[in-house]
Amino acid sequence: MISAEAEDLLGELASEGVAPWLAWSSPEPPGPDVVRCGFAGVRMPPGASLSAVRAACTALSEAGGSVAVAAVVFDRAAGPDDWVAAARVLGGGVDRPNLLVSIPATKAGIGAIADCLAEGIGVDSTSVVSLGQYREVLDAQLTGLERALAKRADLGSLVASASCEVGPLDSEVNALLDGIAAGTGHDLRDTAGLATARLVYRLREQWLAGKRWQDLRAGRARAPLLLWTGTTPVHVPALVGGNTGHVMSAETAEAAARQGGLRGDTLLGRHEQAAETIGRLAELGVPVDAAAAAVHGRLNGHE
């Protein structure tokens, strides 16, 4: 499925605590070769059939991997209850413990996270673009896990993840820089996504040091996972930190492998540098929060 060099890269990522996920585009389910290559998770395409998702979950189950697929709500005015209902239908139809139901980090989607987790439904919160959005997602994740713990649920098998859109944020900020700064050669191009990712990582580490998480950890809860999505080959070695994951195509894995190996952890303790980058962008008239809001709107169909 992929070259030996790309398999080596996936192995390097795993040794650094980074789960390589395969961005899958085919309506046919990926087979056991995905696990043999080193992928620990699969993101299925929107509209994938229940049988395809079930087969993917089965393929990854023995290796402890997860499969994420989107819940579907057609009404843009849908509320949290609608997303919970859609997650129940999808979860019940697939009926595999390693399924993650993908729900967008909109106001209604975030409102559904806690209810889903409290019912034992694993959730991947998608289209997280800003630090503020991730703060709301993380709070909802911990709330859901706390409610599940109160019900004496097995938290060791319950996964909560957040998919952070790195590449699209870079593209949005790059376009703004091209209009006001030094064009394509500006030194702040391709920095906004990494800076935001580092701040998101820092926020999660702070929360995991708090009492809420310590109580959940005592109940065998698994730490919320951060997944980097929309990335390019350049992002792969730049986003390496414990309990994270890269969602990438086989082509991205191949291109990243051709660039060379990893550089160790590139997230822990980098928050001050990240904040400085965000500040420099703001000084140039490029507020990253506004750019993130624009990306988030496009991702969720309401510009």
Rank of each mutant, 00 (worst) to 15 (best):
P237E: 06
L239S: 06
N243F: 00
T244H: 02
V247C: 05
M248I: 04
M248V: 10
M248K: 00
S249M: 11
S249E: 12
A250Y: 03
A250Q: 07
E251F: 00
T252E: 10
A253H: 10
A256E: 00
R258C: 02
R258N: 07
Q259L: 11
Q259I: 00
G261H: 11
L262Q: 12
R263T: 03
R263H: 08
G264L: 05
G264S: 03
D265E: 08
D265F: 00
D265H: 04
T266K: 02
T266P: 04
T266S: 14
L267Y: 09
L268Y: 13
L268F: 10
R270G: 08
R270Y: 13
E272W: 04
E272A: 14
Q273C: 01
E276D: 14
T277N: 07
I278F: 13
G279R: 15
R280P: 07
L281V: 01
L281G: 05
A282N: 13
E283T: 07
E283S: 09
E283P: 00
E283N: 07
G285S: 03
G285L: 09
V286K: 12
P287D: 12
V288F: 14
D289R: 12
D289S: 09
A292I: 01
A292R: 14
A292L: 02
A294N: 08
V295C: 15
V295M: 13
H296S: 14
L299N: 03
L299Q: 13
N300S: 08
N300P: 09
N300I: 14
N300T: 15
N300R: 02
